[in-house]
Design a protein around this nucleic acid. Structure first.
Lengths: 190, 190
DNA sequence: TTAGTCATGTAAGTCGTTACATGATTAT
DNA sequence: ATAATCATGTAACGACTTACATGACTAA
């Protein structure tokens, strides 16, 4: 039972439909949780049935109707209780790192290519999230916003997201360089 | 099917029993994958049945017998094939960040306490992993080792682990400070 | 006319976590 | 005595992924 709290936390900032929430889980929410749309639709239904969310139907013309969800008092209480429980440590789980671990026992060419690709993806995310941070804090300088802003939660998780992606990028580039240097070395001594 | 490759990659460095592998998954392997002992015992049995690992019984006195596993040629081939496939991006999934996201809509005291605690845990991991790096590279300076060392895979993933933990610690301390400052602010204006 | 956005799900299968189960040896 | 280490699993449940299913509107 963990996705439920991520959904509740994401919905604190307003009304969302399942579809909009799925978008959010690709953008800002991705900084602290990941989930596919199918999971979200199922979780929203469950949370509504339990009374932690309330949904209302919105009729639309020219596009499908949708249901918008808001966190109820019970939902806020559930989050409150969750915050008191001990958090489990977070784990890295990354295909690419499994490949790097095996790197000098298997062919390295494919791994190097994927490191380059990942570095590029991370660069894009850093750029995107940096822009998102600017939007979130508006005109105010950062420390001012952090001291007096009304809603800083999403900003704080976004900060972590930027640092994580930046760090991912640095590592990928460095490891790719190391593996390339070793390839050249081997070519020379052959 | 992802744990299987993490297990194969971990076993590249020698013979392990399920018990020893579980230890490894708490230490070095934790830098790229996480799994509980139960999962590992099940996965080892499956991999052996498929011929990707071979196990041999070791009789012991004064303590329970154990089974040691080695990667077979088929296992190495499986890893090779895995390295060629496209890696999925890795996701953050962290209870603590869910709490921070909700931070200014719920009570912050518990969150601050957990941030401090996590910072301390991460500090410990950084220290431990830094020492592990030193052990792995022996006497050689790092760039020398990375160019000519025989087996650098575990070192490379460990580097990422250190960076990740260091970054986690910095973030926790910073966020805890921000939340504390806001608490004091509110106290002054009350 | 092709791809992308908006919008919501079901079904099957795999993966991961929690709880349970056992039992001898060694260090504090 | 108590806790930790060594050693291997089973069973039940909950979470997550992959594949499938539908259908109208809009922009290039």
């Amino acid at each position: 039972m963990a996705l439920r709290h991520a959904v509740l936390a994401a919905l604190l900032d307003g009304e969302y439909s399942g579809y909009q929430l799925a978008k959010a889980f690709d953008i800002g929410v991705a900084n602290f949780w990941h989930a596919l749309p199918q999971q979200l639709y199922a979780e929203l239904a469950k949370l509504e049935k339990e009374g932690l969310l309330s949904g209302r139907q919105v009729l639309q013309e020219g596009r499908p109707n949708k249901r918008l969800f808001t966190v109820t008092e019970a939902g806020r209480a559930e989050l409150e209780a969750f915050a008191e429980t001990v958090a489990k440590p977070s784990f890295i789980r990354d295909d690419l790192m499994v490949k790097v671990q095996a790197a000098d026992r298997i062919g390295t060419a494919a791994v190097i290519a994927q490191l380059d690709e990942r570095a590029e993806v991370s660069r894009g995310k850093v750029e995107f999230l940096t822009e998102l941070l600017r939007t979130l804090r508006g005109d105010a300088p950062e420390d001012e916003y952090l001291r007096h802003g009304e809603r800083i939660g999403p900003y704080l998780t976004c900060l972590r997201g930027v640092a994580f992606e930046q760090e991912t990028r640095d590592w990928c580039l460095r490891i790719a360089a190391v593996l390339r240097a070793r390839q050249e070395n081997r070519a020379e001594h052959a």
